[in-house]
């Protein structure tokens, strides 16, 4: 049985001790290899589309993370403050609304957001791709920000169960400072970062899924080409779908394997990019939990 870990102070042992860094390295390296392969074998227009799609998805994912952080922080702290205020009306209203939002599957929230987006596109209210991506990030953030709000509330509630908050209050330290600085900033950064990594993964998944879904069509007036190029959008493209369908050939004709990596590269590259990124982000999040002993 292998029970030993890396010995000495090699770069391997340093990587292994960080737990999340090896997977970050694998992710970047994997995408790097894919990029080189595509640069060599994928036709130039498809390669350009793939790069734009990846960057757009990355940008949207990052924006989802930012929006979720702001929304989650605001709602989490507000809920806590309102819960401990004299009047409980505000707390009841916000909890009720968040409770309803929680019961709507994320993809439905995003779908509704996309329906509104198609109406805005159709009426010419939104035109630029940049604004579209911000809109998409905004609606995905609405679907997922409650996870950040929950983490914030859990952290505050945890410290409330200790003497932490009361001891500082008795010394005259303001409650605002105790929550925002002492609890959230100084004691919850790792927890929040972990949650944000997970949200980044969910946002990539939701983005790709919704883009793939709308390839079926949300409106007779607006189609895939009206939306910014993302990984999901590119995967829903007919060429990519054909490439993925070609994988079925492997069941009957295993010798077809080498051909796939050259002839069906667009669809395969997009699918690999999505799946590999989802796997690596999950592993990074898990490694982060282990490194910071969050569980």
């Amino acid at each position: 049985m292998a029970t030993k870990t890396f010995t000495g102070n090699s770069w391997l042992s340093i990587l292994a001790s960080k737990k999340d860094l090896p997977w970050l390295t694998i992710w970047i390296a994997g995408l790097g290899v894919l990029w080189i392969w595509d640069a060599l074998f994928l036709n130039a227009p498809a390669f350009a589309r793939l790069q734009i799609a990846f960057l757009n998805s990355l940008f949207t994912g990052v924006m989802v993370v930012l929006f979720s952080l702001v929304l989650g922080w605001f709602v989490g702290v507000s809920l806590h403050m309102l819960e401990h205020s004299k009047s409980k009306v505000g707390f009841a209203v916000i909890s009720f609304v968040t409770d309803i939002l929680r019961s709507i599957p994320q993809i439905i929230t995003v779908l509704i957001g996309y329906v509104v987006l198609t109406i805005l596109l159709h009426n010419g209210i939104i035109r630029s791709s940049f604004v579209q991506m911000l809109w998409i990030a905004g609606i995905i953030a609405i679907a997922v920000f409650l996870e950040v709000a929950d983490t914030i509330r859990q952290r505050i509630d945890y410290f409330r169960t200790l003497d932490f908050v009361d001891a500082m209050l008795c010394c005259g330290i303001k409650e605002r400072r105790i929550i925002n600085v002492e609890i959230l900033w100084k004691n919850s950064r790792s927890h929040m970062l972990h949650k944000l990594i997970a949200i980044f993964g969910i946002s990539i998944f939701l983005q790709c899924s919704i883009d793939f879904i709308i390839s079926v069509g949300l409106s007779t007036d607006v189609s895939l080409i009206n939306f910014p190029m993302t990984l999901g959008n590119l995967l829903a493209n007919v060429d990519s779908k054909q490439d993925i369908l070609a994988l079925s050939n492997l069941f009957t004709e295993p010798g077809y394997l080498p051909v796939i990596f050259v002839r069906h590269l667009q669809g395969l590259s997009v699918a690999f990019c999505i799946v590999f990124s989802l796997l690596c982000i999950y592993m990074i999040a898990n490694g982060f939990v282990r490194r910071h002993k969050l569980a």
Binding site: D163, F164, A167, C170, G172, E175, E182, K186, N187
Partner: peptide, 24 residues
């Protein structure tokens, strides 16, 4: 909060581990 905490009265809690911010 306005008149007592840290002004007229203060209190030292029994568990220092819980009362202090360990990451400060």
């Amino acid at each position: 909060a306005r008149g007592v905490w840290g002004k007229q009265m203060t209190m030292v809690f029994q568990h220092a581990d819980e009362s202090l911010n360990q990451n400060s």
